[in-house]
């Protein structure tokens, strides 16, 4: 953090703080630590509780006094798998992975083009991309629904892939562009002097340098696609339904069995939670579309 250097003259001139300093400092740090941990735990508690409940028997889940000690069981997870979560997980994974790949395939070239100043009116293009993100999804859902219906593409994972790509592409373009912009111009010039072709400039210099940024972008796309609910609810029913839809169906068909629900919910959240935790450093950047480093 800050360097200790400026503190030393103060120590010699004001011995009072030098004596009381360490203790006060310790107390301050201790209370600060306690406060921060408390805040962290309060926010984390619902998630923790969900995971705990997933390992309970229903009798332990439905209690007026919460059971913190209980004998854990995997039977809820087993029940969830028995109820046919498999295809839903597969649909979610398919929609998420393929739409993310498609976003990168479309977004990387676009962001590259927009990071070069020679593209006139880049602002207009960027403006367009981001404005699509600002328009409420509901404004286009009716024609999309009708078009999809008329094309016979209702309840089709392909439809979700296309829509998730459109949903994430603007964010991805902004984000990727900010990564491309960070590649120093002189490095590209050095490469040009070294003799790269345009193609080599992109594949051997640009892409390797922005690889971590591409990974971060992919992560953000994965989070948003995996968690998406509105399209999935309205455009799928059985064959192509994803995890959030499964949860809704599970809730209505199984009634409110909390432990089983918690197990299903835990499974639904786990991939994104893990991915987000692993890449937390990139998360801010992604969430702010590259504006915040």
């Amino acid at each position: 953090m800050t360097t200790a250097a400026p503190a030393s003259p103060a120590d010699t001139t004001t011995p009072r703080t030098a004596v009381r300093g360490p203790l006060r400092h310790l107390l301050r740090t201790a209370s600060w630590t306690a406060g921060a941990w408390l805040a962290g735990l309060v926010f984390f508690f619902p998630v923790l509780w969900m995971v705990l409940t997933a390992f309970k028997q229903e009798s332990d889940a439905y209690t007026t006094t919460p059971h913190i000690v209980f004998s854990p069981t995997l039977s809820q997870f087993k029940a969830v798998f028995d109820s046919g979560i498999g295809p839903y997980l597969a649909n979610s994974a398919l929609a998420t992975v393929l739409s993310t790949i498609l976003v990168l395939a479309l977004g990387i070239p676009a962001a590259y083009a927009l990071s070069i100043r020679s593209v006139r009116k880049w602002r207009d293009a960027l403006f367009f991309f981001i404005s699509t993100k600002m328009l409420p999804v509901v404004a286009a859902i009716i024609p999309i629904y009708l078009a999809v219906r008329d094309l016979g593409a209702l309840d089709n994972v392909g439809t979700l892939i296309v829509l998730y790509t459109a949903m994430n592409l603007p964010i991805a373009v902004w984000m990727l562009r900010s990564f491309f912009l960070e590649v120093p111009r002189e490095v590209l010039e050095a490469a040009r002097v070294d003799g790269v072709t345009l193609r080599q400039e992109i594949t051997r210099i640009m892409l390797p340098i922005v690889a971590p940024g591409i990974a971060a972008t992919a992560l953000i796309c994965v989070i948003f696609s995996w968690n998406e609910f509105f399209f999935a609810l309205n455009l799928t029913s059985v064959r192509a339904a994803t995890m959030p839809v499964f949860l809704v169906g599970f809730m209505t068909s199984e009634g409110l069995y909390w432990a089983k629900l918690a197990a299903a919910a835990t499974l639904a959240c786990l991939p994104v939670l893990l991915a987000g935790w692993i890449a937390q450093k990139q998360l801010v950047r992604g969430l702010s579309m590259g504006a915040v480093k």
Binding site: A39, G40, L41, F43, F44, P46, V47, W49, M50, T53, I223, W226, N227, F229, M243, P244, L247, V248, M251, L256, W258, L261, A262, A265, A268, C269, V272, L273, A275, G276, W277, Q280, L283
Partner: peptide, 21 residues
Amino acid sequence: TLLIAPFLVMPTVAGLLWKTT
């Protein structure tokens, strides 16, 4: 790490979780 967990939770689950447990 603990603090960012709520943001990563699927909104559908978040609603469910709060409504029930």
